[in-house]
């Protein structure tokens, strides 16, 4: 298991080279990319709660690991100032079969969205504004 909160850019391919464990039959990965919905976004700024962030990420990864018997799990989440097109976060899950690997990855994404203390701020030509949480993010947790 590897959990990382970092400002540095990461390389998803390099991360996967070391990932999986000896009994993996399926690996699912998700990489989130900074996207620009408005066409004018200059950067995305991510704030977090040091200490609580790592604890929340670890708890989410441990729960996924136990529930879907994962042989390996990886969560990387960046903080600080990010440019459009850069990777913002990555989740990888390794299990014996694909159903477990897919479900565990979706579970972790849903929980990371609204239970890990990160906040996104969009920087544009007219200034900056905090991105609001969506009610669908909270509802997504109900399926687990």
């Amino acid at each position: 298991m590897r959990i990382s909160v970092q400002t540095a850019r990461f390389d998803p391919a390099a991360e996967l080279a070391q990932f999986g464990g000896p009994h993996a039959g399926a690996i699912v990965t998700f990489t989130g990319i900074v996207r620009d919905d408005t066409g004018t976004m200059q950067a995305l700024e991510l704030e977090h709660y040091p200490g609580m962030t790592e604890a929340a990420m670890t708890r989410i990864a441990e729960e996924a690991s136990a529930r879907w018997s994962l042989s390996d799990v990886l969560v990387i989440h960046r903080v600080g100032r990010l440019a459009v097109g850069e990777p913002i976060m990555m989740v990888a899950t390794a299990a014996r079969h694909r159903q477990a690997a897919f479900a565990a990855a979706e579970f972790m994404m849903d929980y990371l969205k609204s239970r890990a203390p990160f906040w996104k701020k969009q920087i544009g030509p007219e200034g900056a504004h905090w991105i609001a949480a969506k009610s669908t993010d909270e509802e997504a947790l109900n399926r687990w």
Partner: peptide, 29 residues
């Protein structure tokens, strides 16, 4: 609200709590 880095709620007691954090709903991922 988080009490000693655990999500909590506004009716929670503060006895023994060292750190109280206030923030908007989280937007990770």
């Amino acid at each position: 609200v988080a009490l000693d880095q655990q999500l909590s709620d506004f009716s929670a007691p503060l006895a023994g709590v060292h750190e109280i954090a206030f923030f908007p709903p989280m937007t990770g991922g």
